[in-house]
C-alpha cells in the first residue's frame, strides 16, 4: 500500500524522487533543454523521438539503477504489454530467424521507412557459430537452447524478452523490439526458434 503510494508519487514526479544530487539534476535539466533546442527532424527521425517515455525517464534519472520496488513494478507493467500469438505457438522457423538476426536495418534517418526493420541481434550478441562478425554489447547466446532447454516456459521467456527486454531488466541496454513496433509476432517467433530449436545451428 505504502509502496504503491510512493510509486505513484515517483511516477508523477520522477524529478523529485529519484534524483541523487542537485548539481547532477541541474546539468541533466540543462542537457534536456539543449537537446530539445539543438536537433532537427530528418527522414523518419522526428523530434518526437527526443522525448523520454516513463521508463526512459526513470532510467535516465537513476543512472540506470532504479530502486528495486520501482523496477519490479515497472517491469511488471512492461511484461503486461507483451502480445502473444493467438495460436499459442511461440517457435517459428530458425532459418527465417537467422535472416532477421543478421539485419541491422531500420529506424535511422537514412533508412527507408517502407522497408522491414531488422533485429540487429548480431550487432550485440554472438549467436550462430558460423557468424564470426558479432558484437559484445550483450552476452553470447551461442548454445542458448542447449544450455537453458526449450520448455514452454523457456519459449515464453525468450519470446517475452525479445518483445520487451525491459520486462526483466528495467534499464537493459537491449531495445524493446515488440513494444517499439520494430518486430512483429511472426518475426519474434522465428527468433525464438533460432535460439531454442534443437535444429538451429545455435544448439548444434
Amino acid at each position: 500500500m505504502i509502496k504503491n503510494i510512493l510509486l505513484a508519487a515517483a511516477m508523477a514526479t520522477p524529478l523529485m524522487m529519484a534524483q541523487p544530487a542537485a548539481a547532477d539534476g541541474d546539468h541533466r535539466a540543462r542537457a534536456i533543454a539543449v537537446i530539445k533546442k539543438d536537433f532537427q527532424p530528418r527522414g523518419q527521425a522526428g523530434l518526437d523521438r527526443l522525448a523520454e517515455d516513463g521508463l526512459q525517464a526513470v532510467c535516465n534519472r537513476t543512472g540506470n539503477k532504479p530502486p528495486d520496488y520501482i523496477a519490479k513494478q515497472m517491469q511488471a507493467d512492461q511484461l503486461a504489454g507483451v502480445k502473444y500469438p493467438a495460436d499459442g505457438k511461440l517457435m517459428g522457423d530458425w532459418k527465417e530467424g537467422e535472416k532477421i538476426a543478421q539485419s541491422g536495418r531500420g529506424f535511422t534517418w537514412t533508412d527507408n521507412p517502407g522497408l522491414p526493420v531488422g533485429g540487429n541481434c548480431y550487432n550485440c550478441h554472438r549467436i550462430a557459430p558460423n557468424e564470426t562478425s558479432f558484437g559484445t554489447v550483450g552476452p553470447s547466446l551461442y548454445q542458448f537452447g542447449k544450455i537453458r532447454g526449450n520448455t514452454p516456459d523457456m519459449q515464453k521467456y525468450a519470446y517475452s524478452k525479445i518483445w520487451n527486454a525491459k520486462a526483466f531488466n528495467l534499464c537493459s541496454e537491449m531495445p524493446r523490439f515488440g513494444h517499439a513496433g520494430a518486430l512483429n509476432e511472426q518475426q519474434i517467433k522465428h527468433l525464438v526458434a533460432l535460439l531454442l530449436d534443437p535444429e538451429s545451428p545455435v544448439n548444434k
Binding site: D24, H27, A31, I32, Q56, F107, G181, A182
Partner: peptide
C-alpha cells in the same frame, strides 16, 4: 558536465 548528461540521455525507439 552538460555534455556528460547528453551522453547518458536515453530516448528514441531503441532507448539508446
Amino acid at each position: 558536465e552538460v555534455g556528460k548528461e547528453i551522453a547518458a540521455y536515453r530516448a528514441g525507439p531503441y532507448d539508446f
